[in-house]
Simulated assay, not measured.
Amino acid sequence: MTSQSILYITTIIMFVGGLAILFMGKRRTRSEELHTICHGIVPIIAACSYFAMATGQGSVLLHDEGTAEGVTRVFYYARYIDWTFTTPLLLLTLCLTAMRHEKIRAGAITGAILADVLMIVTAFAFGASVVPWVKWAWFAISCLSFLGVYYVLWIPNIESSKADRPDIQADYRRNAAILSVLWLIYPFILAVAPDGLGVVSETFSVLFIAVLDVVAKVVYGLLTIVADNRATETDLAEGTVTHKMPTRAVA
């Protein structure tokens, strides 16, 4: 299987997955509607990114300094554009899950998203760099930014979720754990991919990142939508919904 075929297959999976999430998600409350739209649009954005990479519009050839003359690598810059939009959306819904019935901590959400964007932008600089010491300097900065994201997920957000129902606490901890583990794998695969040390082949790195992306965007999105629908049913039964969507009058 070639890198291009993997990219085309992932494009289809992402697009179908996004439509499935939009179809499965409900819009009984404004919170539920927001979760549905955010999780549905994430795989569709990814589908556009994978289509760009599959057609050659989302990649360029780079020649790293110090490598043999004529040896180049493919730099898939479109994936970083994808992550710049999709990971903040995933973070937003995750933070709102922790603060479902509590006061929204705008500072925590903003801090997590800004740290996340900084992590992605500096990871892009890492992949685009051709000078070794510059490349790994950017990699270190990206990893440090990642710690800021982890801090918000596991300290302020955990504190916010503790004041909520047990099912909301369980949903948040599960979702945070899934994303934390999945996102932790990315820097390792990027470090050994052609953009980094070049230990693994381009095809392997494309396949591995594609699998991670599908799990983080489609599988995670479906699981989250099911959990959010269940939590909304409890909200409606208990009368704890503060923003119920208006019903459309029938003539």
Results as ranks from 00 to 15, higher is better:
Gly107Phe: 07
Val206Ile: 14
Val241Arg: 00
Ile225Pro: 06
Ala249Arg: 13
Pro166Glu: 00
Ala176Gln: 02
Asn175Cys: 01
Thr247Asp: 15
Ala170Tyr: 13
Gly221Ile: 14
Ala125Met: 15
Phe124Arg: 02
Gln169Ser: 10
Gly40Asp: 05
Pro156Val: 13
Ile168Phe: 03
Leu90Ala: 14
Ala140Leu: 15
Asn175Leu: 11
Asn175Val: 02
Ala52Glu: 04
Ile168Pro: 08
Val218Cys: 13
Phe75Tyr: 15
Ala137Met: 12
Arg100Met: 03
Val211Ile: 15
Lys135Ile: 07
Ala163Ser: 13
Leu147Gln: 00
Val134Arg: 07
Thr242Arg: 09
Leu236Asp: 05
Thr84Val: 03
Thr11Tyr: 08
Leu236His: 04
Gly58Trp: 14
Leu91Tyr: 01
Val60Asp: 13
Pro194Leu: 14
Asp167Phe: 09
Leu96Trp: 13
Ala193Pro: 00
Thr110Gln: 05
Asp213Pro: 08
Thr242Ile: 09
Ile113Cys: 12
Leu96Phe: 13
Gly107Cys: 06
Met1Leu: 14
Ile9Lys: 11
Trp154His: 15
Thr240Phe: 02
Cys48Gln: 04
His35Thr: 15
Ile120Cys: 00
Leu89Asp: 04
Trp138Glu: 02
Ala251Gly: 06
Cys95Ala: 12
Asp116Ser: 15
Val241Gly: 07
Val74Ala: 09
Gly196Tyr: 11
Met99Thr: 01
Phe126Ala: 07
Leu96Gln: 12
Leu91Ile: 09
Ala237Met: 10
Ala193Thr: 06
Ala98Glu: 01
Ala52Trp: 09
Ala106Leu: 07
Lys103Met: 05
Ala54Met: 14
Thr122Cys: 05
Arg230Trp: 13
Ile41Pro: 05
Arg165Gly: 01
Lys135Ala: 14
Thr29Ala: 02
Asp116His: 10
Gly107Leu: 06
Pro246Tyr: 11
Phe126Cys: 01
Ile141Gln: 05
Ile178His: 04
Met119Lys: 06
Arg30Pro: 00
Phe139Gln: 00
